[in-house]
Design a protein around this nucleic acid. Structure first.
Lengths: 167, 167
DNA sequence: CGTTCTTGCTTCGAATTCGAAGCATCTGCG
DNA sequence: CGCAGATGCTTCGAATTCGAAGCAAGAACG
């Protein structure tokens, strides 16, 4: 442990708070737009977007969950909803009988396409608009390594199931 | 509408995705720490933190809700929990009979103090650690204006209750 | 091969979250 | 004053969210 009474200076606090607030506000605004435009929640949209980007239009459940930072059980629920709506299809993986492969359908792609313009509009007007071109670059350059770092850092108790404290 | 087929270039997308992911991952990690350290959810912590920072240790419900980007009804629920736990007190405002003033208690401050070091630890190790001093400054300088912009921009249908579309 | 650990997903129950509707209090204006 | 509209909060019901527990299929190792 670094200090006995660790503290953040104003600049650090400012960066932290601004980050959280900006993300919250953006998410909130986007959520509304998606609801109106296609009756999608943010998670659902993220899932469709990821699937749409994937080479084969499909991903494993676990990878999706990790990708969008969601619980496994929550993903099961959402995948169920999306499937019921005909936007994705679930099928067991051929090579690994345990895993389930989720694939976006044509209807899913269609809906994605329908919702995307408005989504981009919101992101542009809220996040991008107040930033100059090189500032957007700077932001990406700043946050991308942080993301890598966070992805690499184990969640602070990387114990394999069973075992409450990873002592 | 600006374009018929608006799109974001890779840099813009990178900034957007990195922002969302970083915020999600950070929130998730912080949430765990808070749960373990003091059985607090992130919202609850944010509320206590805001109250702790306030001059009189108190705020109106609405201001709190807006501050942490939360629904009114959700805040009512959380305030109820915090009050039941003895961490805050609610009382009608003297000057405006409708509003409710939430005030942090000594127990609330104590819990805040107990949880804070670990919280800072997590934020430092995940968000701040991979950034150099001037990068943290740059990040704050980038995101603060964006926050202002978002706070100033009305939520895209600023209709006074009743009226579904703010035509 | 058999045993044990690991991994992938789902079910379950409990807690949280939000928006719509309801109530009470203010504010502006005739 | 008296009334319409705005504001502040809570209650309500429905949907979502998570973690713990459970089940099945792979992997490691003797």
């Amino acid at each position: 442990m670094p200090d006995s009474s660790p503290s953040l200076d104003p600049v650090q606090l400012g960066a932290y708070f601004a980050l959280i607030e900006v993300a919250s506000l953006l998410r909130h605004a986007v959520e509304q737009q998606l609801r109106e435009a296609g009756d999608l929640s943010y998670v659902q949209f993220q899932l469709l977007a990821r699937l749409g980007d994937a080479p084969a239009g499909s991903h494993r459940m676990t990878d999706l969950a990790d990708g969008v930072v969601y619980s496994r059980s929550g993903l099961t629920y959402q995948a169920g909803l999306l499937e019921k709506a005909g936007l994705v299809v679930r099928a067991p993986s051929p090579d690994d009988e345990r895993s389930v492969t989720v694939t976006i359908t044509d209807a899913g792609r269609a809906l994605l396409g329908k919702v995307l313009p408005g989504h981009i509009e919101v992101v542009s007007s809220l996040l991008l608009e107040p930033l100059a071109r090189d500032q957007v670059e700077a932001l990406a350059a700043l946050l991308t390594p942080v993301r890598e770092h966070m992805r690499a850092t184990p969640p602070r108790s990387a114990a394999s199931r069973r075992r409450k404290d990873g002592a």
